[in-house]
Design a protein around this nucleic acid. Sequence first.
DNA 1: GCAGGGATTTGACATATGTCAAATATATTG
DNA 2: CAATATATTTGACATATGTCAAATCCCTGC
Lengths: 117, 117
Amino acid sequence: MPKALPLIDTSGPICCSPVAAAPMSPDDALEVALRLKALADPVRVRLVSLLLAEDEICTCDLAPALGVTEATVSHHLSVLKKAGLISDGERRGMNVYYRARRNSLVALCRVIDPNCC
Amino acid sequence: MPKALPLIDTSGPICCSPVAAAPMSPDDALEVALRLKALADPVRVRLVSLLLAEDEICTCDLAPALGVTEATVSHHLSVLKKAGLISDGERRGMNVYYRARRNSLVALCRVIDPNCC
DNA sequence: GCAGGGATTTGACATATGTCAAATATATTG
DNA sequence: CAATATATTTGACATATGTCAAATCCCTGC
């Protein structure tokens, strides 16, 4: 599952919306769907939104901000991590800090955007 | 559920990524998540991909192209319709034709893209 | 009106998902 | 080392989801 995603390789400018260039292979579609699924939850949307605005946040601050337990936050973080949308947690003292991977988000948009290129 | 989505109003240029402008309200996050969820399935990604490339396609052509039954296609079409990502089916003769709502897809990208504006 | 093909709905099923409490792990400080 | 604070994992649960077969609905052409 946490394999490299050729379609959403963040190293370099991605363009020419693969979704608009049918027929899309089932494998490619699965990769895109997995990324989208990772974002397709209201709590995770807010989580990413917070990370985008705050640069880095620890689990203990995310939990109250999102109104769920830390266990639930951990679960959501792991989903987003597997999809490459956020960084691996960075332990500093007793806290673990996360940050958004802006490039991955941008790349995902490019793949979906029919107006891209 | 099939209510108007202020965040993803396709009438006019949408910009200034709401996701990147935290804190995002739970209501707004839910709307975005619902749209994303509608796309977050490999079959639906391919379905939309086909529609983007072909302008319009009927259910009977989609089923074999996607490798699922027509019942399943109908289900996916209904999910995409509720999310506003495709048009209502247009009956012509015995077939029903669907087309992608490019603007809705583009708008969804804008909402998520951290680099938008 | 009836028989046919196409589309949708319904019912049923297995699987996936989101959540929390409790258990476990990791780090700091006394 | 003991006690405390933060994080993650595990187990359990309810709910949502994707799929198909069968029933039903629509349209066309005899």
